[in-house]
Every structure is written in structure tokens, then in C-alpha cells.
Write a protein that binds this DNA or RNA. Structure first.
Lengths: 222, 222
DNA sequence: AGCCTGTTATGACTTAAGGTCATATTAGAC
DNA sequence: GTCTAATATGACCTTAAGTCATAACAGGCT
């Protein structure tokens, strides 16, 4: 319940310094401060219990300023989730050219994507709430998943060609199934986050991988 | 099990006629009308766009009356979801003594549990929103899943003994994995319900079943 | 510098929904 | 018929989201 100094929330990025003009710098700065304070307050008091004025007070700006950056509280969380999505793309791009076995790569990706939530379970709860609370945020989330799926599908295709993953499904179907299992695990865990999410993940992956690895008795190692 | 103390009773349809006293009859009647109207309005206008007064107007009762039955809009949906959970228990009790193969039984259960949502996607969206919108409803949902999982685990155990399902996981772990995949499928589908949920389900099940059926000759690192 | 133009900040104000509560109404018991 | 407890009701209060006219500001231009 410590308040001021805990780094509960990861910072999406701090590219403020690089910006050319002072106006743009200040803008990025304010936006970042808003996101930062919002996420901190959400995890402290809960999403609905946090008012927009709470956020602007914490960020030391006027109330109206908030609406210059976000149309609603929900969109702050959307911003965070989109940042998370960026990680998928980066990760996948590396993984495609990796020599690591698919089983390991996909598992590590899952860990990477969820470790923030393991540290702060309410963050996930809040994000879920935010995304389902309106049409526009739901679209955003659908989009986020869609993009992630495209990246994942590349990876799946690559590993199908290497004979690591069963090829009686399209890469997209496999990517989709991966997302379903991963997200399902996260959501159900978030309902009662009593044990580490990483444990659930391991369990989940063990079953899922059995279902998506190449089924035929192919040569093992290479 | 303990229905008398439950403040939120998911009575399926019209048990009104059977009730002994006129007071109880009227009460059940009003409650049912509230649920009916609420669900209708939710799917017409969306959950957040529907106000409590909208509901009471549609049900033709005073605004205050609503709070005699539900502490919040969200709890109306909770009531519906709990009713859905009852179906799991009933279904599982039958399935344990069935001669149907596990692969089929578990798939049909999934279909049964989701067909309402296939007809009305917004219902699922609304339920998700409602459940993540507060502590009390989230607890309710966690509880619902927990109970369902206990039922499912019985089924899993039974089928493990028959040698249909792999036995290197506990029945509960398998039940949990089933819920993860099923729910993950539902949630991701609900983000963009462009094709029938039943299609997604079939796809999902095909992969999941590969992962949880009894693995015949295990020649892996003995 | 001093002016000019588009950008951002701000908080009083409006709107509207949730939730409370004192009172009226009703059902059933005796 | 009367008494009591359960229920219904809508006026009323509180709170938060969202708007907008205005002020402060940054930066370009001469």
C-alpha cells in the first residue's frame, strides 16, 4: 500500500527528450504524466473508484486538460495495451530468425507478455474492464489482437516449414488458438489471482503445445 | 446448494404460479420483469447506455423498486450468468454416466454453454463488462467458474479412468485448461463477432482435444 | 524586440445517472 | 376491522463526466 515511489507500472517509453520543439516535448511529458498517474491510481483504488479529477490532480494539471489527451479514462488503458502489443511484433520479428525451438520461443513470448500482470493483477482486471466498457475501446482491442495475430501467424508459418508445428491448420488458425489459450488463461487467472500467473501459464502451455506441435513421429532434435 | 440465503436467484422462467402467497408471487413476477426488460434493453442499446430508470420504466415500476431487487445493474447480468452455470452442473451429471466418447461430450458441452451468445453477441460483451466492473461481481464470476470447474473435474476424472484422457495432469488441471480455452475463445470472439461462435469453437476444440486426449505410445524421453 | 496565429490549459458550468430515504401503499395475520 | 411488516415510490442528494469560453502560451515572421 506504499504510494509514491513504487514502480508498479512500467513506462511505455520516454521519448520526450528527443522531440524537436518545446511544445511537443511538453505535450509528450504531460501525456506521460497522465498515463503514469492514472495507472498508479487505478491499481491503488481501482478503476471505477478513480475519477478523472483524481488523475489530473495527481498529474498536477487542470481537469479539462485530460480531455485534450484522452476521450475517456478507458482510453488511457487502451494506450497501455497498445504498447504491449508493440512488444509482440518486436518479439516475433526476432523469433522468426531464431534457432530456438518453437516450443521455447512461444512459451517465452507468453511469459514476456504476461509478466507485467503477474506483478500487478489489478492492472489486468482494469484493462479488461476498460476494453469491454464501450464500443470504441472494444474495437481498439479487437484491432490490437488482430495485429498481434498477423505477427504470430508469420512465426507459425515459419515453424511449420521447419516441421516443428502441425500443418493441418493454417498459420492464422494456430495464432488464433495461441491467443485464445493465452488470453483465456490470463482472464480466468485474473478472476482469482491467488497463485502466480506464470504457473498457470506453464500448465497451459504444456497442454497447448501437445495440441499444436507436429503430430507425426518426426525426427526429434536437429 | 444453499438457495435460501442467496440474494440473487437465477430462476429460469416462470415459477411464479407455484408460489404460496400472493406477495411472493408478485415479488417473483416483478423480479422477472426487471430481468427481462434489463436484458432486452442491454442488447438493444448497450449496457452503459441503459439507465436504471430505463429499466424500471420498461418494467413499469418506480425507480426505487429496482434497488429492492438488485444492488446494481451489473447484478442483473450476474443473475443470468449464474443461471447459465446451473446448466454445466446438470450437463456434467448426465455426462458422467454417458457412454458417449469424451471428445464428443466435452465438445457438446461447449456448444451448449455458448449457444445463447452465438445468437446474441452483445449479451456476452455485456456480461463480461458487468463482471469486471466491480469486486463483488468479479467474485461472483470467480465463484461461478470455480463451481463449474469442480463439476468438470469429476467428468475429467471419470474419463481418465476410462483411458480417454491423458493422466499426467490432475482432473482439476484439465478442467481448468478446458475453461481457459473455452472462455478464451468466447472472449476473443466477442471482440469481433463476425463469424459464428460455433465455428471458432470447433476449431478450438480440435486443437485442445489433441492436447488433452490420452497420448497413446509415449516414446518420449523414457 | 513586438506582433500575430494557431495550440494548449483551465475550471466554472451543465447534464445526467446512481443511490437514499421518508412516506404511502399493500398483504397477510389475528 | 385493525395492526404489523413487507414493499413500492419518486423527490432529493451527491457525484462525476464532459463542455466551452477564455486565458496563457509557443513559436514564426518582419
Amino acid at each position: 500500500m506504499n504510494t509514491s515511489t513504487d514502480p508498479i507500472i512500467p513506462e511505455p517509453s520516454s521519448p520526450c527528450e528527443k522531440l524537436p520543439t518545446r511544445r511537443e516535448r511538453r505535450r509528450a511529458e504531460t501525456r506521460e504524466r497522465l498515463v503514469d498517474c492514472a495507472l498508479r491510481l487505478f491499481s491503488e483504488r481501482g478503476f471505477t473508484a478513480t475519477t478523472i479529477e483524481d488523475i489530473t490532480n495527481a498529474a498536477d494539471v487542470g481537469k479539462g486538460t485530460f480531455f485534450n489527451y484522452f476521450p475517456s479514462k478507458e482510453h488511457v488503458l487502451a494506450s497501455f495495451a497498445q504498447f504491449q502489443m508493440g512488444k509482440i511484433q518486436k518479439f516475433v520479428t526476432q523469433a522468426v530468425h531464431s534457432t530456438q525451438p518453437a516450443e521455447r520461443v512461444l512459451y517465452e513470448l507468453a511469459v514476456e507478455l504476461t509478466k507485467e500482470y503477474d506483478r500487478c493483477p489489478t492492472l489486468l482486471q482494469n484493462i479488461l474492464l476498460a476494453f469491454f466498457s464501450g464500443e470504441s475501446t472494444r474495437r481498439l482491442m479487437a484491432d490490437t489482437f488482430e495485429k498481434g495475430r498477423v505477427s504470430l501467424a508469420e512465426l507459425m508459418k515459419d515453424r511449420q516449414h521447419r516441421g516443428e508445428i502441425r500443418d493441418d491448420f493454417t498459420p492464422t488458425e494456430l495464432a488464433l488458438q495461441y491467443q485464445r489459450a493465452l488470453f483465456g488463461t490470463m482472464v480466468i487467472w485474473s478472476l482469482a489471482p491467488t497463485r502466480p500467473l506464470s504457473d498457470c501459464l506453464k500448465e497451459m502451455w504444456s497442454v497447448l503445445w501437445s495440441g499444436m506441435r507436429a503430430q507425426k513421429p518426426s525426427r526429434r532434435d536437429a
